[in-house]
Design a protein around this nucleic acid. Structure first.
Lengths: 107, 107
DNA sequence: CGGCATCCGCTTAGATACTG
DNA sequence: CAGTATCTAAGCGGATGCCG
């Protein structure tokens, strides 16, 4: 079960979705734009999963055209810190990693 | 590039490998046993990738039979904290997530 | 023991088209 | 705008066999 959850939070897109929601509610297409490279299909599937797991809340405004807001739930908010720690780590270590790769590939 | 790194840490097995190395050097087959469900092939491939990225150090002892130790590099060690934060989060929230799923599936 | 090479099925995700 | 449906290829990963 813990395994299942780690597979979830360690999923390719989950990190980006959580990070994209850190400022507050975001509409569907706005998220697509924020998460470079994600397809409509993948965003939908992953958002459904996160909603099912109680990490993301979906709010439909039945206007025309329809509007849907996604935001972190309370539990989703508690995941933000660990996720952002990872993002920060990635930012600060990109140079080191690039260097390591160059050295490795050279040998 | 940051994207590439996040894909790395968000990889299915990376989190487990890093976590498995937190106590110190571990031999290949010992890791296999610690990481439930990973195949030899996947462990090898992922360890190579992490070695290339400078996160894991591989030490070969040319004895018979051969012995190979894997351990976190200094940079790999700095990734431990964020990763363990995620693991801890997964542990503390498994009940909430299970509950959320039951509620979602019921509706 | 700690791999690498090959084969292969099956999931996954991207592209595309369609809808309320 | 925010999806759903369908198709397809690409690759992920498991199984197996062999090797130093």
């Amino acid at each position: 079960m813990v395994r299942e959850i780690l597979d979830l939070v360690g999923d390719k897109w989950t990190l980006y979705i959580i990070a994209a929601l850190k400022e507050g509610p975001v509409r569907f297409n706005e998220m697509r734009r924020r998460i470079d490279g994600i397809s409509q299909r993948m965003l939908t599937i992953n958002l459904r999963g996160l909603e099912r797991d109680g990490l993301v809340k979906r709010t439909l405004f039945p206007t025309i055209p329809p509007r849907v807001d996604y935001e972190l739930t309370e539990m989703g908010g508690t995941l933000l810190a660990p996720v952002m720690a990872l993002v920060t780590w990635a930012n600060s270590n990109q140079e080191n990693i690039r260097g390591a790769r160059v050295r490795y590939d050279a040998s």
